[in-house]
């Protein structure tokens, strides 16, 4: 699949971060939608199931891992990459158990992110 055909959803309450990230991805030919909380994320996924969700673990209200659980329950084929601001690998590993594709620690390197996204969309995992 070409990058331009990817359907990506970014979920993070850090607006400054996530909008800029979306823009940068756009510059690299990756179209992405942005939502700022878990509830909207689930709604968005249900309306238009994306190929990939980049999800922050620490979300206001609904916790990131709950959102992950919700996505995986309804759309098991949707790949999820977790982002965590907290350097613990604990949340990440927990997320992997819940079916996340991978996790990354903020601040992140956009090239590494795209590498992982490519793996997730094209990969067999």
């Amino acid at each position: 699949m070409e990058r331009k055909d990817w359907n990506v959803l970014l979920v993070d309450d850090e607006r400054e971060f996530v909008t800029t990230l979306s823009e940068r991805l756009g510059l690299r030919g990756i179209h992405s939608r942005v939502v700022f909380d878990g509830e909207s994320a689930l709604r968005e996924v249900a309306e238009n199931p994306p190929h990939l969700v980049v999800l922050d673990v620490m979300l206001p209200g609904m916790r990131g891992l709950e959102v992950l659980r919700g996505i995986k329950a309804g759309f098991p084929n949707v790949k999820v990459i977790l982002l965590t601001g907290h350097g613990t690998t604990k949340n990440g590993i927990e997320g992997m158990k819940l079916g996340a594709f991978d996790y990354m620690i903020k601040p992140l390197d956009i090239d590494v992110l795209i590498e992982k996204m490519t793996e997730a969309v094209g990969g067999r995992r």
């Binding site: 400054e16 971060f17 800029t20 903020k106 601040p107 992140l108």
Partner: peptide
């Protein structure tokens, strides 16, 4: 602190 840093990183 990682959060603002992540934002700056993207900017």
């Amino acid at each position: 602190i990682n959060n603002p840093l992540a934002a700056i990183n993207e900017k």
